[in-house]
Design a protein around this nucleic acid. Sequence first.
RNA 1: GCGCCCGUAGCUCAGCUGGAUAGAGCGUCUGUCUUCGGAACAGAAAGUCGGCGGUUCGAAUCCGUCCGGGCGCACCA
Length: 551
Amino acid sequence: MIQEVEQAIIDAVKKAFAVDVLVHLTRPDEKFGDYATNTALQLAKQLEDTPEGGPRAIAQAIVDNLSNGVIAKAEIAGPGFINIWLTDTSLAKLAVRQPNGINRGKIVVIETNNPNPFKAIHIGHAFNAIVADTIANLLAASGATVHRVSYHGDVGLHVGKSMFSLLKYVDGNLNRLNDIKSEDRNSFMSKMYADGSAAYKQDTSAKERINELAAASFDRSDVIYGQVYDICFKWSFEAIDGIMARLGNNPIEKRYLESQADELGLQTVKANVGKVFEESDGALVFLGSKYGVFDNVFVSSTGRGLYAARDLGLMELKNNDFHPDKSYVVTAVEQKDYFKGVIKASELCLPDLNGQTTNISTGTVKLSTGKMSSRNGDVLEISWLFDQVTDAIVKQGGAVTEQIVAGALRYEFLKSRIGSDVTFNVDEAVSLQGNSGPYLQYAHARACSILAKAKQTTARNYDDNLQLGERSLLRKIGEFAEAVERSINDLMPHHMCTYLYELAQVFNHFYEHNRVLGDAREAERLQLVAMYTHTLKAGLNLLNIPAPDKM
RNA sequence: GCGCCCGUAGCUCAGCUGGAUAGAGCGUCUGUCUUCGGAACAGAAAGUCGGCGGUUCGAAUCCGUCCGGGCGCACCA
């Protein structure tokens, strides 16, 4: 349909001016039609002898030569825009169009969560996980075969810090751990890590001890150490999996651990010393400054592989497991430059993986009180946020369901453009009105309730006789595929949120002003409502937000 | 110091391959309720799009510069 309109304009320009143009259609304000184009304005620049009357005259010539069955009306407006109205039948066809599958046949692997064990899961983790999971959905909607994986730091300094506090707490008696109730474990782990971090900073003997405990995380030969580690490791992943499920994330297919990536990464770095990496102060470093990224240590002077080496190893593991065309890693923006370096290094020593990995960075989640820091224990734990949303629903007088809680949280995190900082406002996250997840869910449930009460389900063709409110709704439904395509092209879920919110607004307006059941146009309107619920649900599904029939 | 990002209504944000009167939500104020679900709808007030300069018929959008804020820059992850 869009191509038909574009072609009609191209043909008209050819007829009137004997030149080829690129036509760019936009979706203008509804009062300006279904599509608009500034082709005449562009043409004014391109044509050597501009006709008398300027862009508006050019637009007139185009409109005069416009002939196409899908266009009902074309008008010239403003400095020379051409506004186009489709026939209602064309609009109805647009409304059932499927998005383009631009990634059909491609294999994609994406990390959809990566909180570290031995630390608390906070809202920053939730934010990243929700964004990554939704991007995975978008990739799947574009036709790709998507493999969801996760990656976690199970070894290293942060483990040493937590183990320092944990071993002190346990003091040889494992029952002390077993006494901690499951709902308290996340904050317990958070405290253990924060205490360990503080000790590391303040106390040099503690620092030495923590370094030993960090090294011990690789072999875990000490019996008590191993037992405490295993218990807390299990707790951590129970918490991670539970929270990811509560957030509505799809399950992962494979979990990677840093301890698994370590050996491969270390080998790769060592095999490329002299070519890609150089020795410096006993460490193996990548001199990224030669390539416009910063210098970074991959292997420490003690010979241990660091985070960067493990990321290299992880790339190889993923490649061996899935042979993907693309691999996405969603991280906080703090790691943006770091990833540029790792990706650059990987291009040099793993040429087969060239162009495979893309780092998508999400903005920093900040609190109104300042930046979150898990080192200081200054974080908003995700369970606390679940409770806040639950309370807000109760206050509203609604029935609390996991679907609404998850919907509220997901939508809040997805509705703004990814990449820039997010100042996290709890009151707004918890809001159920206006531009929010529950608003959309409600708008869905309400429409479903009309359909449930309807007796007839006759399908109708729209013979270019739609009433105003009906046409507005159909027009908006017809933008669905474009919204999906926009989201996929940019890998930006917020485009979908914006569209769905507008769609629900148009429906709510329609709902207030047009009686469906018992009206003379019941059949036509019922069909519209059915198309609307179908579209809204499809959009919410893309965001992994449940669309309940009742709430 | 070097590099990257951000600055749009009181608050939180859309809009950025340049285009029509810069749009939402929250908050504030005013309405709608014998009708399909009021988590709704209708309306009002609120903006030098950080400042200045440039490119252009046309700039929130592109370029330069300054101011303000954030992040990153060698053995943490």
